[in-house]
């Protein structure tokens, strides 16, 4: 005995509508993927361009300034001469300038706070005055 085995399936050819929809899907996918890529890369390029322009602007503005560095600023020099290290310009040397102007970051903060608590501001002023004014009197 025998029987007929019939295999049925989709038509061998495709219609124009099917061909167009396939192509449209490929195009939409390509646009979507390249759109994401273009957006990401062009955004970063724009950001880099802005940053470069901003850096250039800051440097050119700085070049035109009369006072460009803090150690040449008359007000800062006066502050040191009259208060932070009387009679001298000695940044980072007097106890007062250390106490009022300096700070630390990270794991050193607690140690720094403990050090500040050890010496009061009055003691720092006295110590600075004794150190600088005393030295000036002695020189006289």
């Amino acid at each position: 005995m025998s029987h007929i085995e019939r295999i049925i399936g989709d038509p061998a050819t495709i219609t124009r509508r099917e061909a167009i929809k396939g192509a449209v899907t490929v195009v939409i996918s390509a646009i979507l993927a390249s759109g994401i890529g273009t957006f990401a890369i062009s955004s970063i390029e724009k950001a880099k361009k802005y940053i470069t322009t901003r850096i250039g602007g800051l440097y050119s503005q700085d070049a035109g300034m009369t006072l460009r560095v803090s150690h040449a600023n008359p007000e800062v020099i006066t502050l040191y001469e009259t208060f932070l290290s009387p009679g001298a310009v000695a940044p980072a040397e007097s106890e007062l300038s250390h106490r009022l102007l300096h700070t630390v970051y990270g794991s050193d903060v607690e140690h720094h706070i403990a050090h500040l608590k050890e010496v009061s501001i009055e003691e720092a002023i006295e110590e600075t005055d004794a150190s600088y004014l005393g030295a000036a009197h002695a020189a006289e």
Binding site: H3, I4, R6, I8, G9, D10, P11, A12
Partner: peptide
């Protein structure tokens, strides 16, 4: 209802 015949053959039971 849209499928087409792809192959048809006689087979032994």
């Amino acid at each position: 209802n849209t499928l087409e015949v792809r192959e048809e053959k006689e087979v032994q039971d």
